[in-house]
């Protein structure tokens, strides 16, 4: 059997348990497996505390899996960080750096000269709605702008896969809707492969090509649902019958998981 092209990324049998001391073990991930094609946007949802961030930490090489493999373009890359650009839950913009300096940090760390790093980051400011804020400091920006700056810092690294951990989780709902439609827009103009963790089912459907639902802890993949909505997606699409159908399916699966995670 010959596969046409390997997926951009693939997780195979990822397991993770933490030693809690006193000989106790907390099993967090139990055989998590899914993949993303090049240019595909995969959203991951699951009950809170089920291990989503842990899964990202393993993908980004920050945490070692107890077992399992990560593949990029068919090659095993478990533990390597250079394929993934990671956007953590907190924006983590440093108050001692201007927005331009914050967004070019990844390139600078990777060894680019300050000048080139800043020029590369600056060229994206317009697309990210940050023009004119190059020399501002993080505390002068609104929540939405901070998230866009954090995302800019992530994509400018030019890594193959973006890992976005609840990027809009801390925003008010109006700003969040704004950011979703903005991200959907920049997404359609770029060939990024991305995995997005979210606790917002509508956000997952609206943004993703596929939604992966994780079970309660220890997490495994409960549902892998393809979202067959045309792109570019207008906000009005979120009220369509198909959208509502996806929402019902996901909600039902997630509810089941949340209930079982509360059971003793």
């Amino acid at each position: 059997m010959v596969e046409a092209t390997p997926p951009k990324i693939e997780l195979r049998g990822i397991c993770k348990s933490f030693l809690l001391g006193h000989g106790q073990v907390r099993s967090v991930l139990d055989d998590v497996a899914f993949s993303a094609q090049p240019g595909e946007f995969v959203a991951v949802i699951g009950p809170s505390g089920c291990g989503k961030s842990t899964m990202f930490n393993i993908m980004a090489g920050l945490e070692t899996a107890s077992s399992g493999e990560i593949l990029v373009d068919g090659d095993v890359v478990t533990g390597q960080h250079e394929h993934f650009a990671y956007m953590p839950q907190k924006d983590l913009l440093f108050p001692w750096r201007s927005i331009l300096e914050n967004t070019s940090l990844g390139l600078e760390v990777a060894g680019e000269t300050k000048k080139i790093a800043r020029a590369r980051a600056a060229s994206l400011f317009a697309a990210f709605g940050l023009s004119g804020f190059e020399d501002s400091h993080p505390f002068e920006l609104s929540g939405g702008m901070r998230q866009r700056a954090a995302l800019l810092r992530t994509v400018v690294q030019g890594r193959e896969v973006l890992l976005l951990d609840e990027p809009f989780g801390a925003l008010d709902s109006l700003t969040r809707t704004d950011m979703q439609s903005w991200l959907q827009g920049v997404w359609s103009q770029n060939a990024w492969t991305a995995v997005l963790i979210t606790h917002d089912i509508r956000e997952a459907i609206y943004l993703a090509d596929r939604v992966v639902v994780l079970s309660a802890r220890p997490a495994c993949v409960r549902l892998n649902l393809t979202i067959d909505l045309p792109r570019p997606r207008a906000l009005s699409m979120t009220t369509s019958a198909e959208f509502a159908g996806y929402e019902r399916t996901l909600l039902a699966t997630l509810h089941e998981e949340t209930r079982s995670s509360r059971a003793p």
Binding site: L62, A85, Y86, P88, A110
Partner: peptide
């Protein structure tokens, strides 16, 4: 130092 900030730097390859 925020542990998450260290992790961010590590993910960048620092």
């Amino acid at each position: 130092t925020d542990r998450d900030a260290i992790n961010l730097l590590r993910s960048m390859g620092a």
